[in-house]
Structures are given as C-alpha cells and as structure tokens.
Design a protein around this nucleic acid. Structure first.
Lengths: 343, 343
DNA sequence: TCGCGCATTGCATGCGAAGTCAATATTGCC
DNA sequence: GGCAATATTGACTTCGCATGCAATGCGCGA
C-alpha cells in the first residue's frame, strides 16, 4: 500500500545522532562528541551512546559533518588517460597513501584533454580539501584553485610559475644517464622516439636526451614520435629502419614503446638486441622486467613519489600558509640486457 | 594582524547561494533553482543570477546539496590489490562510465584483505549512492549494505545467495574453450597454474578447466598455484618441469603467469613455445599481445563489462525496487601463437 | 473589464552533525 | 566540610542548499 514500497526489512531512514541520543537518553551534542577524537565524554556516557549507536546501526554522516566543519576529508586525484602502464600503479599507491591518513580519494580520469574543465568544476563543487594532479593543467586552472584556496600538488609536471607544489622524477637526469652509458659503450648513431606532443614528461625526457647527446658532441639525431603505446613503438622503429637510416641505439620515451621497438627490431628486421641494436626506455613498468626484454631503463621510484605527494598535500591542507615546495626524485638506473652497456 | 593570515588575495570564504542572491537582488531559492535541472525560472532571472554567480565565482556546494537531497551522487568503487594488470584498466573505464552519467567515484583499494571492514565503514559514512565491488565480500558485509539499502554490484564475482547484482566474465566457458582447443590439437598432458587461494575468479577458472578436461577423459592433471604474478608463473613452471613431469600444455589462471611460464620454458628449459610446450592464459591484458608472447588467451570484454556494471548500478540507484540481475559475458577467444592450436 | 489558471518568485523550514556557551556535576585541596 | 577549579553535559545555532507552500504577476477568454 505504501507508495514508497519497501521490499526488504530495514529502516527506511538511516539513524541520525538524534535517534541515538534519544535511545541513549542523552543530548545530540553528546552523541556527536562521542564520535569525535578530542571531545570530552565520561566513560558512562560513552558506553551508553556506543551501545545505542550499535543497536541502531548508526554511522556519523560524513556529508553533514563536512558541511559544518568545512572539511570534506576528500582529495581529488586526477589522472590523464595515458596509453601507459605507469599511471595505474601510481593511482593505487596514492589511494593507499591517502587512505592511511584517513582521507578519501575522489577519482577523476580525463578521457579527453578538454574534459579538464568539467573535472575542475566537479572538484570545486565537491569541496575537496586538496588536489593531486597527474595531468595537464593550464595557468588559468591553477589560478582557479589558488583563488579558492585549494592546495594543489602536481605529479610529474612542474609549472613555470612555481606557484604550486610538485613531486616529480628527474626525467632529464635519467635520460642523461642512459645517453651517457650508451655513448660510453660506443654507440654513436642515436634515434629518439618521443611520446605524445602534449606530454610534458615526454618533452623533458626528449630534451634531456638531446642535451646530453649535444654535450657529447652528437648532434645528428633522428627523432620520431609515438604515443607511448607498444604499437607506436613498433611503428616508429619500422619507420626508422625502413628509411634505411643507420642506427645503433634507440631511446624510447617510455618502456612500452621501447618494448615495441625490441619486438619490431627482432621480428621485422631480424636484428639482435642488444648486439646489433640497443634499446632503452623509461618508467620501470612491470613488463620491462620480462625476460624477453630485460629492459635497460630508469625506474621512477613511485613508492617514494606517491608517499611524498600525499605527505605534501596533507601538509598544505593542514597548513595553508605553507609555501609551495618541489620534490625531485632521481630515477633508479636499471641496467638490463636490452642495451649493450658494460657494467 | 589577522589570526587567520591570508597570504594571497581571494575571498576567505567561498561564495554561497545567499551571496549570489544578494548581488543579483533575488532570493536564495531563485539561485538554487537556476542551478537545478527541472526548476522553473524566467530568462531574465536566470541571466541575472548567472551573471552574479560568475562574478563571485560561485559553485553550488555538492556537500550541502547531498545533505538535503539525500543523494551524494557518488559511488564507491572498491578494488582488491591484485598482482594483476587487469584491474587498473577496469578502474579507469569504470570511472569514465560513471563520469558520463554525472556520478563521481570514490575509490577504495584494499591493501590487505582485512581492510574490507574499514572500507565498508567509510562507504557508509560517506553515504555513497551505490557500490561497485571488485573484491571479496562476505555475507555479513553484503547484509550491511542490503539493510542500509545501498545498491551493490559485484564485478567478476557472484554470490551464492544471488541477493545482489553482478557482472562477470564467464570464466568457466573461457577455460572450456581453451582446454577443448588444446585437446583437439592433440595435447594430452596438462598442467594448470592457479591463482591465489582466495581468488574466486581463479577458482572458477581452475574448476572450469578441470571440468572440461574431465569431460574429455583427462583426469590426471598437475595443478600448481601461483599468485597471479609474472614471477610466480616462472616459478611454477620451474617447479613443474624440475620435477621431471612431462607436460605439453600449461593453462595459467591469468596472462601474467602465462607470460612467466613462457619465459621460463624458453629461458630455463630451452623449450620452444608452442612447438614443445603450449601455454595459454586468461584476461587479455596488453602484454599478452606483445610479439614475444602472442598469447592464446580469453579476453575479458572490459568495455562491455564496465558499461554494464555502471548501467546496472545506476538503474538500481534510481529504482531501488529493481531486482538483482546477473549479467555474464563470454570472453573473446584470442588465438595466438603461444599454443599449438590449428585455426 | 473581470476573473481564472498557470508560471514565477520568496519565505520558511529542514537535512545531520559540530561547536559555542552556560549550567551542572565532579574533583581536589585546605 | 566548604570552596575553587575542572570536567561533563545540554540547549541552541550554524553550515549551504532544496523544496513545500503561499503570494505575486501574467495572459487570455468571456
């Protein structure tokens, strides 16, 4: 008969602090205090309230709490849609980091680059306490957060203005090491396979590699571009060698493309890696360690990076006065057998 | 002087609907209505309000809205910490699915199996509108959600009671196809490498393979267990062949382990895959298509699965009366060259 | 021109918890 | 035992928005 039919048992309405207060014969304030950290409540009271709460299946309403405290205890984590096995792992680790600090993660992914404005809007509407951004952001968007006083930490991208905090891996340093090692081992004819045009990480890596090559006196370098995917790595190598270019070392902007290069070199051109061609990548993703590739690469220390990012964001949430800070981590040098480099 | 020092410019307090109302010379209700879907407001009013809102940088407070409407417009997505490249992709796609439906995702990961209770507590406190669970759940936890009237959709795990909706890939069917194909191609000595004990997916796959083998008259099968990781696949094959067991087909519970098997077979034992040993996996992850492996596997149709999951959850949120529903998808049969199977 | 119906708009209230302040209970101390 | 100091407790307000209801304005037919 009831209009709002209720098939299963169970209360229609969730218990509130008033319900608990009534059952326990105390005031709502008392219930509230029992469910807070530093509030004062006698043992007797606490016991009565907890029992009543248990009986009613009461849980504090985090939404209501957020309204009054002006703290949602949620942070937004934004990741771009990368054809990259790297970010998923970052995401999981970040979530664990925040979870340990009793903070919830509101996840946003960007299917399209232009979705960023919609996402910004949502983050503002949900009053997240802070934002961890692992995607492109432009100056005006940064400004929106600044004027809304929402702490922002950038992951693997720095901003000229240095107005915001960031955590990143030193892409250039890693590339310099790779180039230096290859050069020392006698490689002279280099090719670089960059990532997507709009990837700042790819730009830093490519720049780093070119700079080091230049320092070593190598200025004739073929640069091809891919999109971070395995397939694009294969395609790039195909293009490279098809043109009859001579090349003894390929520097891919990430591991996935490096792996694609190796497969193309072996499969399409019958080249022996690393004897006839050395291939290096960047990131240190799982498949880089597969025996078939055993990639020489630079592993981003994501454990430390995610921990640092979470810590910085939490600090800035707790102390809005804190000045922006930049933390740069060196990548771990992984010497695999995909490149002819003496140890 | 001010205690709450404010280094940067910008209003301390975010603009509220009252602020906008005042500036626009209308009532707060009017502002509220302008920012809703089906509310009535004249063009003139709408224009004035929107202009005032723009000027103040006003955004509706989703927290406050959630409090009054009893709808947070957030769903929880829970994933277990799998040594598995499969879930991250699922996560990203689910997020996009919900995002398209104007629903936010609150992400929870389980570092430890026992964290589930903490996570359940958080989901309840945040009043999520629904839950998408891609992790283990026991009967009592399901009961908590049911009694709180929170729609729940299980991802790749079904529940005996069938009290809740689920979306899954037909693991057994996929395994049956793999086994059938291998058998038809002449394989007779099978080994199975299962996943973690507590993985229901692994159990279904292993059961499915064993059942089909039994139907084909093959009852002597070696079963080893791994943990879904590449390393454990290698280790399992090592154990298998070290014991001098003869085997011509390995069925791994997922792709990562299958890849490990291939590397171990080739690297440690100098076997040719597939000529001397066939290896098959399950999932259809990216690396399965790397040329070095070209895995024969069953690809879970995650695009369709995530779309179905999001759709089902949204339906159940909008119509709590809806009965639980189960959607089972067949995996896509991927015939690679890691197994000696005629097309 | 009058009156009715519909589209707008404002007023007042409520969502659920936290925190202020004052009242009360408890404790310690001489 | 008496009093000040401290610890508990409750009444009431507040957070920002949505919504029921009443009031207003409008257009149009008779």
């Amino acid at each position: 008969m009831s209009g709002r039919g209720q098939k299963h048992a169970g209360p229609r309405r969730r218990a509130t602090s008033y319900d608990v207060a009534e059952l326990a014969g105390v005031s709502q304030s008392a219930v509230s205090r029992v469910f807070q950290r530093g509030a004062s409540a006698s043992k007797a009271m606490r016991a009565r309230v907890l029992e009543a709460a248990e009986q009613l299946g009461y849980r504090p309403n985090a939404i209501a709490r957020g309204l009054i405290t002006q703290r949602s205890n949620m942070v937004a984590v934004v990741i771009g849609r990368q054809t990259n096995l790297f970010y998923p792992e970052v995401l999981v680790q970040l979530t664990e980091q925040f979870s340990q600090r009793d903070i919830r993660v509101l996840l946003f992914t960007l299917a399209q680059e232009r979705d960023i404005d919609l996402v910004v809007e949502q983050m503002l509407q949900y009053r997240v306490d802070g934002i961890l951004m692992a995607a492109m952001l432009n100056q005006s968007q940064v400004e929106v957060f600044r004027s809304a006083n929402i702490p922002l930490v950038l992951f693997n991208r720095a901003f000229e203005g240095a107005l915001t905090s960031s955590v990143r891996c030193d892409q250039a340093e890693g590339e310099r090491w790779l180039v230096q090692s290859l050069h020392a081992a006698g490689h002279r004819r280099f090719a670089i396979i960059s990532g997507p045009e709009d990837s700042s990480v790819s730009a830093e890596r490519t720049q780093g590699a070119l700079a080091q090559l230049h320092d070593l006196g190598v200025d004739e370098v073929t640069v091809l571009s891919g999109d971070y995917s395995y397939a694009s790595g294969k395609a790039a190598l195909h293009t490279l060698l098809q043109n009859g270019a001579r090349c003894d070392a390929v520097i891919a902007a990430n591991d996935a493309m490096a792996i694609g290069c190796i497969d193309a070199a072996r499969g399409e051109f019958g080249l022996s890696v690393p004897n006839e061609l050395s291939v290096v990548g960047f990131d240190g993703i799982g498949p880089a360690r597969f025996d078939a590739y055993d990639l020489t690469t630079v592993r981003q220390p994501i454990g430390r990076m995610t921990a640092a990012a979470a810590e910085m964001l939490v600090h800035r949430i707790e102390d809005p006065e804190m000045l922006p800070e930049h933390r740069v981590f060196s990548g771990e040098h992984v010497l695999g057998s995909s490149a002819r480099i003496q140890r």
